[in-house]
Design a protein around this nucleic acid. Structure first.
Lengths: 352, 352
DNA sequence: CTGAAAGCGCTTACAG
DNA sequence: CTGAAAGCGCTTACAG
């Protein structure tokens, strides 16, 4: 069972503990520090720890932080904590930094740069030792600010255009090429793209990947085959897909920039009185929870958000430790997961 | 556009700023404190702020915290940050406390009491001023610990059996009664329950609500009509529903303790070669994202997790401010959302 | 192995 | 309106 500690005695400080133990505060400090209690005679250290326990001593890490100039705190900025892509990233980061005694402060920018800047200032005032930005745009004012402040910073899921900070991302380009390859293999030749915002590296690179995919298989790319949704959500995806299919009724397949855009695309397909995958196949990206249970179950590109968090945290800890980071962009592989939203093209649809 | 501040000068302290301005540090402290700069001559205050800006002064809130004995930090414990029920709760809490200058540290217990205790100790060492527990069981060791430590604490989503701490929850009982009412109205008379763990207030109260629902409509409750899933996830729901339907093939409807259990129940129904809602209707709880898009779209009870977060944060701030809290349990209403997973009973099914 | 001293960077009650 | 002093609770280089 769970051991319940002696209740805290409010205002019981290290100094008082030292008096009780009949030693100097510095000895108490050493005895209580796992890295230093070797410097103290074993019996003394034991006695101090026993008294600390009996009296419910609680170390004040605010005071320790001020003295050591280290907060053992890292900040994480996400554009939307409720977006299921970010929660495993956050967990992954926390898991790794906890191992080094760090805690994580998570802040939600709501996707707004102004709010991001305010939050970063607040985190800096709290002396966080480093920052992970999951919210970065391709040229991010918040990243500019962090760089100007000289605080260790790592990007995750999204990268900077100029690689001014290390980033851990999934292979956006290869993922979308795999999507096109899959559709081409099924026999599709008229393939469109509903992408995320171009100001985000994921929006930009996944579109590039789509284009490369077409080229890989000798299909002509024309700019109007790719539309840009104004946000990564279902409604923006639906709206963009409506436009795309209005201009391109010949399409038998659509690659989407993420799963929510894909779900919006499915809605747009139904809105035209068509079916997915009967008339139009759809591929998403991310493999977020429950997309295996929607109708039709979504074919998508699975990424490893938790691993991205792990890797980003490891890089941040290196940076904090003053080590050089050797890779400015760590690209994790992703996998095509084939489900029910893709099928060979319907001949009738092709004649439409 | 976004204004970029002068870069921080590392190690530039209030004392140095005071020297530059030719005033005493205490005057700088006052000039920079929005609540106190009225105490300083306007021209002096302006000059100080200008110099602070020019030199990239950054207040060290660690030092301020030590001096004032206030961290303006609150902690939030969740059992699983990746569970979409908790993200809006976290957002809601953060939104409210930010307004009072607080930041939020989120910690993920993974549902384990030991881990929760460790995390709470860490948060207390960081001198968080209060804690929101979204992870509480009906008799929670972590809550015991917080109570023993005397730290302000509020529960959210889940309550303590003895109401030893204020809690903000949705109306678990009424929600499940509404589910039964809906099914009864469709004509169902053989209704079962797949509930969450009884050690959680949601698991316990929703089952009670189910039982009351049966009684409301003159249907006999027998204990074996309700099974307990070992966790709030799809697989546990499936497994529990398999057992329930094996023992009760006559059921034409199943109420589930949350949406994931409901999705598991749907899987179990398909596993028996039956259909939902053709053979068995299913009702969930929470209305989590995407359950409107699964097949069949889930009939469920919608709660307001963000509002729960708001309310919990307001209560915590009151507690921190030393005010009395008048309601030990704030119960927010929930709403039945009817979708495709419920339909009138199939006569053939009833004869099975 | 232990102690004495200094100091991390702020804020605030007190005095003038 | 401003200054001087004290102190929040730790840690660590230095001395012995």
């Amino acid at each position: 069972m769970v051991s319940v500690r002696r209740p805290a005695r409010p205002g019981f400080t290290l100094k008082q503990l030292a008096e009780l133990a009949g030693v100097h505060p510095s000895t108490v400090s050493r005895a209580l520090d796992p890295l230093k209690h070797g410097l103290v005679a074993a019996d003394v250290a034991d006695r101090i720890r026993r008294i600390a326990e009996e009296h419910g001593y609680r170390r004040n890490s605010v005071a320790a932080s001020l003295r050591t100039q280290r907060s053992t705190l890292v900040g994480v900025l996400v554009p939307d904590i409720a977006n299921p892509v970010f929660s495993p990233i956050i967990s992954g980061i926390t898991e790794v930094v906890r191992g080094q005694g760090f805690s994580t402060i998570v802040a939600d920018t709501g996707g707004e740069a102004d709010s991001g800047l305010r939050l970063v200032d607040e985190l800096i005032a709290r002396r966080v030792e480093g920052l992970v930005l999951a919210s970065a745009t391709r040229n991010d004012p918040v990243l500019n600010h962090c760089l100007a402040e000289g605080i260790p910073v790592v990007l995750v899921n999204r990268a900077d255009d100029l690689d001014r900070a290390p980033a851990v991302v999934s292979d956006d380009i290869l993922g979308m090429r795999a999507a096109v390859e899959h559709l081409h293999g099924l026999g599709h030749r008229e393939i469109g793209f509903v992408g995320g915002p171009e100001r985000l590296s994921t929006g930009h690179l996944r579109r590039i990947g789509f284009e490369q995919g077409l080229t890989d298989f000798g299909l002509a790319f024309r700019p109007d085959l790719a539309v840009e949704a104004r946000a990564y959500d279902i409604e923006a995806g639906r709206s963009a897909a409506v436009d795309l299919m209005r201009d391109h009724p010949e399409l038998t397949a659509i690659v989407a920039g993420n799963d929510l855009l894909a779900l919006g695309t499915c809605a747009a397909i139904r809105g035209r009185g068509l079916t997915c995958p009967g008339d139009v196949s759809v591929v998403g990206h991310n493999d977020m929870p429950l997309v295996d249970l929607v109708e039709p179950p979504l074919t998508t590109i699975r990424i490893g958000p938790r691993q991205m968090g792990h890797e980003a945290a490891r890089m941040l800890l290196s940076l904090i430790g003053g080590e050089a980071v050797h890779h400015m962009r760590v690209v994790l592989p992703s996998t095509l997961i084939v489900r029910g939203s893709t099928a060979p093209p319907n001949k009738a649809a092709q004649r439409r």
